[in-house]
Design a binder for these strands. Structure first.
Lengths: 137, 137
DNA sequence: CTATAATTGCAACATAATTGCATTATAACA
DNA sequence: TGTTATAATGCAATTATGTTGCAATTATAG
């Protein structure tokens, strides 16, 4: 996967890809850092930022910004190659978890003439089933 | 307007509401601060955060988060009272300006059973007509 | 095995946003 | 109009997110 994009195969890059494919949900920089820390790994903060940034550039992952202002990253589905995370996402205001609302298309949006559209994101927010029923996280 | 929500009528609150109704576009905390500074006013940063926060709570404004991670605020249109900024927004990656794509509805999005939806936002990003043609800002 | 260029790790910086608390000013009411 | 309760402000300090520059390191091509 890394080789395909002619990127060097490094420990952190492999770990991040493993992690993102285990979880099926978008993860933020700090969530990834915490998850790795829980396994005794302590990668450099900045390197992780850069790792996620290049993954996003070559479209191995797509990036979604939450209503909390935090960027989250999700493995790009093979079927969606070339279109940045082409489905809505849900963000729980309480537990902060984001999930993909797959298999639903993003709508066409009309923009003023001359506008160059690079992508779009549809974010639904509220309380996830767990948090809505008052169960603890 | 403030009285309706039983909020105290203070200088900053009035100025922010004036500013947001003059401009028809969403403005970020720092854009508002700059705009006020340009008129010789230097309100407290924190107070402005809190002002925007209460405006958002009582739905005088709606809040949109950009792909740059920054929150922007826009006067709630009277016709849309109760539904948080019910139209898409466009954010220019280069000049950072956000605009409303009014008169276009947000689509219905199916969510897992038990989910409590509080709102949704559809953000289109890319280059605005000015920036797309290479003209300076 | 070596060279080179990509990648990392670190320090410093920038910006967005929040919290606590003492002070001030708004608006209700005497 | 004056007094008062409390909402709102101003300030200091802190947290979180994200970026930049650069020297040291390491993956890979040859």
């Amino acid at each position: 996967m890394l080789r395909e994009k002619s990127m060097r195969n490094t420990v952190l890059r492999r770990r991040v890809l493993e992690l993102l494919s285990e979880r099926q949900e978008p993860m933020s920089h700090s969530e990834i850092l915490d998850a790795l820390a829980a396994q005794g790994e302590t990668p450099d903060r900045v390197t992780l930022y850069r790792t996620l940034s290049v993954f996003s550039d070559v479209r191995i992952v797509h990036e979604i910004h939450g209503t909390d202002g935090v960027a989250r990253f999700c493995l790009q589905e093979p079927s969606h190659t070339g279109c940045l995370g082409n489905h809505p996402h849900f963000l729980c205001r309480r537990c902060g978890r984001m999930s993909c609302l797959s298999d639903q298309p993003l709508p066409y949006v009309a923009v003023p003439a001359g506008t160059l559209v690079e992508g779009k994101q549809l974010l639904v927010f509220g309380l996830c089933p767990r948090c809505a029923t008052g169960k603890e996280i």
